[in-house]
Design a protein around this nucleic acid. Structure first.
Lengths: 197, 197
DNA sequence: AAATATTTCCTAATGGCCCTAGGTTAATCC
DNA sequence: GGATTAACCTAGGGCCATTAGGAAATATTT
């Protein structure tokens, strides 16, 4: 009987595809094994546990999202870069809802695996380089990066959870929200007197 | 043998407490039943399924969060109200991480139950009333409300997932981010020429 | 107060899932 | 080709969700 040719990456990919199709919390060892034409016990040669698998899906998603953002922002600057960055983020979440959901799981990921992963780190670095165009000094830059990430992640999450009633298309609020963010970054307020930095 | 005196609300509360203690996805029928000193099968007289229970926890959380925000913002206006609103939101997420996580599950909630719940609707209404102080006209007001909710939810989620490296305390980015949001709301940019509203 | 109806909670059972242990067989390396 | 490594399997234990149907406590009616 020939072998299926499994590997940790192939198991992860199957899990990721399944997550996009049926939702992250319907990704089970049994279902992934079925998709690969294999018995569930066979997966444990490549993946430590279901939690481990979910962590790997999260890291895969981080890598893919980072690549998309890098490609989208390459050669752009200023507001162009901002919009390209944000659109790439949102589009990834739309195209891969299950993978994206995996990125939200609190960091119960195998530390060794996490250390070898470049996706999350590079995503933050990309945000920094994009925002550097706005001439913010630390610690404002860090605060702006965090605000930016909060907006993108929050909008996309609420959208996915059906949080925006259908009155006004989410797309339009998105465009206008990015306009507003751009304006804000150009006029980032100075710390108020009396507040510690 | 005396009875436990269960009801849908008591089961939901036990589930919510458990969610805060051990995380939402460790909330199982069996665990809730143990906590209530009851057999798991007994819960099905009050709750349709595990999914139903999670939906009820989400609605409970929405109600509680709304009440906290309402109390915090009562009698305040302008930036005071904004900060009180945001802090109440974030504090609820910190105090009740499991309940808060439940609010993120896509709306697979029993529609009939949802219709009777006032929490989610009132939370949005409160956001509208708070932002009305900034003299925005529709559709800008709706876009601002959505941006606001995105920031709050996104920040709190990233924080809970350990998304902010410890370099700079999240608290400080939070305060400065709210400063920035306030400024933005005071100077909300007009739609750019050529763009459809 | 007695009889009835209702509801709560139980026991029993099915099937699915995660995961471990230990055996076979296919690929790989000399 | 023979030995080693690894992939994949069978078997099984334990936990969980859910249903069906029975017994006992409460509520309702007379």
């Amino acid at each position: 009987m020939p072998r299926a040719g499994l590997t940790a990456d192939r198991v992860t990919l199957a899990g990721a595809e399944l997550a996009d199709e049926v939702g992250l919390d319907h990704v089970t060892m049994a279902a992934v094994a079925r998709r690969l034409g294999v018995k569930d016990a066979s997966l444990y040669a490549h993946v430590r546990s279901l939690e481990d698998l979910r962590g790997r899906i999260a890291l895969l998603a981080a890598d893919e999202k980072t690549i998309r953002i890098a490609e989208a922002t390459a050669g752009r600057a200023g507001k162009d870069a901002l919009v390209a960055f944000a659109d790439a983020w949102r589009r990834y979440a739309h195209d891969h809802p299950g993978r994206y959901a995996a990125t939200q799981i609190p960091m119960q990921i195998d530390p060794e695996l996490l250390a070898r992963a470049s996706g999350p780190r590079r995503a933050v670095e990309l945000t920094y380089s994009m925002l550097r165009a706005y001439a913010l000094d630390e610690p404002d830059l860090t605060d702006a990066v965090r605000l930016m990430r909060s907006v993108l992640h929050g909008f996309v999450s609420l959208e996915a959870a059906g949080g925006f009633a259908h009155a006004r298309p989410a797309e339009e609020s998105w465009v206008r929200g990015l306009d507003a963010l751009h304006t804000l970054l150009e006029h980032w307020p100075a710390p108020r007197e009396g507040d510690p930095a």
